[in-house]
Amino acid sequence: MPSKPKTANTWYLLIFLVLFSLVPVLKTTNYQMLLAAHVLVWGLFAVSFNMLFGVTGMLSFGQALYYGMGAYGAGLCVKYLGQAWFFPGMALGIVLAAVTAWLLGHLIIRVSGVFFTMLTLAFGQLGWQVMFKWYSFTGGDDGVQNIIPPGLFSNKVIYYYLVLALVGASIWFLGRLSASPMGLILRCVRQNPERVRFLGRRVRRNQQRIYIISSLFTALAGGLMSGVDYSIHTDMFYWTTSGHVILMSILGGIGQFFGPLVGAAVIVTIEDVVGAFTEYWSLIIGTVMLVMVLGLPRGLMGEISQLWTRLPGRQQALTTREEGN
């Protein structure tokens, strides 16, 4: 996997950046830009989640905790200290998320498999309950409104480009990380932790590192979202948010670096389009999901790259794929 997809991923990233940078130019309504911003933020969330799940094999059901921390870092700073504190607040949220991830990591990473999943869920829900109940400080489930980025960035188009730049840079960084020697070790951790130990590498330390990195970028996504929607609320901490990002990743294909991003784009768009024309969205989205799970076992991107490798003259690449899956 490392050598070939590296170049392919660079191309994907470029195409992705160009496409999304055209949105404010080609859009016919502001709404399309809003939707694109949602895709970007959810995409970052999903890609950083997939660093944990798809790459390292740690299925976290509590990433909403960090997403919420990023959002509330920015939101609460704006609420109590004023608009100018938007970016410092976002930074604060990210730092807090990283520290929390470091602390919780010690407790959580001792267990693996389904127990890890459940423990992340438990801590995520605890975080949600605290935010929910600490009404006087967080506003409880009423959320926080009127979060507008300061200065130039109160302009939607400029803020959009800021989101695009930050998301692009983050995804580029995560892509590099995934293709780096550390990424390789993480993949080994997923496939065979025992062997990683034999090779003299520490499993837990690497898991801890990626847990912190993933949480950090998740918090960034949360912070960015608060400026897109102008309002935040405790649902961001709730387990359904974690579940949402899992769905996006699997649907897009967790074996591919860009899979989760595609999954995010597909889910955000489907939810919007289907929601707009029928109240029976849940039946339709459910059916689409069902068909995709049964028909596309590798996720959307996985199937696409499978088709790509099946093209004549690219037979050799198949061997790399097998190993990647």
Partner: peptide
């Protein structure tokens, strides 16, 4: 149909989640 698939756990969640959506409606 999804037993024995790579990353079966994730697909189980996804598939059974789609049941929730469908049954609700």
């Amino acid at each position: 149909r999804i037993y024995g698939r790579a990353d079966e756990g994730g697909f189980q969640i996804l598939l059974t989640y789609s049941f929730i959506l469908i049954l609700d409606d």
